[in-house]
């Protein structure tokens, strides 16, 4: 006890002020930081935007070999009803030939349906090959006209500057002919 008094005895006032000022500054800084969070968070997606974060798509009108584009969270999603040949091509590729190795199995839930986000992983253009007659690139998938990326029938990057496969969104099949994306 007496030691404590001695050690701080020189300038008790100074020490107390320092601690008090420091503590007050700390509380003030923390408070200011917390006050900023609501403003930052207000720029995150709002509740009405989140409520529309999933779409349901009816697949019954897509013939084998055809593909459609649907809008999901402001981006196109490609849904392709793959032919037997396309499925086989996708499954037969050796993983060591791929830039971003992934099996076809890991990219689909039902073999005949391929669902990918239609945004080129290079610089965000929309690859061609969904509508009938558009160039599908060298691997029966999609071809991005911006910088010449070729995707295969599993949406994987095979040639060109893009670093990643086309992204697979989360989706679930509600029935055999309807799927919920997101």
């Amino acid at each position: 006890m007496s030691q404590t008094v001695q050690s701080s005895g020189d300038k008790p006032d100074e020490n107390r002020r320092d601690f008090l000022t420091l503590a007050t500054t700390a509380v003030g800084v923390v408070g200011t930081g917390m006050a900023l969070w609501p403003f930052v968070d207000s720029m995150n997606p709002s509740k009405d935007v989140l409520a529309l974060a999933s779409v349901e798509v009816n697949l019954s009108n897509i013939a084998v070999g055809q593909a459609i584009k649907v809008m999901w969270r402001g981006k196109p999603v490609f849904i392709r009803h793959r032919t037997e040949r396309e499925i086989k091509e996708a499954e037969d590729v050796a993983l060591n030939q791929l830039v971003d190795p992934e099996t076809d199995d890991a990219r689909v839930k039902k073999k005949e349906w391929l669902i990918v986000v239609g945004v080129c992983t290079h610089l965000g253009c929309i690859p061609m090959g969904t509508a009938t007659g558009e160039p599908r690139g060298d691997f029966d998938g999609w071809y991005c006209p911006c910088h010449g990326s070729h995707y295969d029938s599993s949406g994987r990057i095979r040639k060109g500057p893009a670093p990643k496969n086309l992204h697979v969104p989360t989706y679930t099949f509600l029935t055999d002919t309807s799927v919920k994306i997101g």
Binding site: R17, L20, T21, T24
Partner: peptide
């Protein structure tokens, strides 16, 4: 706390 600091100063 601010009041205490103010008193001190």
């Amino acid at each position: 706390m601010l009041y205490a600091v103010k008193r001190k100063i």
